[in-house]
Amino acid sequence: MPFKDFSLFISDTKIGGPFAEALKSGKIFASKCDRCGRMFFPPRPECPDCLAEDVSYVEAPTRGELLSFTAVFVPPAHYAAPPAKMPFSKVAQTPCPVGVVAVAGDLRIMGWIPGMALKDIKVGSLFDVEAKTLKNGQLTIILSPV
């Protein structure tokens, strides 16, 4: 699975297929151990407490407090803007903020926060987490203020 299906390396995981399929249908999967009931996000195909492989994929809770956020102005190579074509010029990029929400229980979900200025984002305020398919087909997760 290419990068547009959420992540560079997700195709090399046991849960990448079902996770990406769920995102495509607007759902965010967590995993739940059938034996002890512990939930995991990111989902995983086994439980490290029980060493059990009997896990179910369940929809993750989607509302919670924003734990923290940032916006990465000097991005890693994959996200860097191409060099300016005009001589003596620079391409400036306004990065989308990224945050982490603690959804019901202690599951933590990372996502983009599109359409909000950095100064308006407050740690501790309530956000909803949503699966999103971008125009180019890329699957991702976004956070919206409640």
């Binding site: 997700i10 990111p42 990465v72 890693p76």
Partner: peptide, 17 residues
């Protein structure tokens, strides 16, 4: 690399959080 890098996270990004 699988779960945080897709959000453009950099090393300074973690400490910024």
């Amino acid at each position: 690399a699988i779960w945080e890098y897709p959000f453009g996270m950099s090393f300074p990004g973690y400490y910024a959080m």
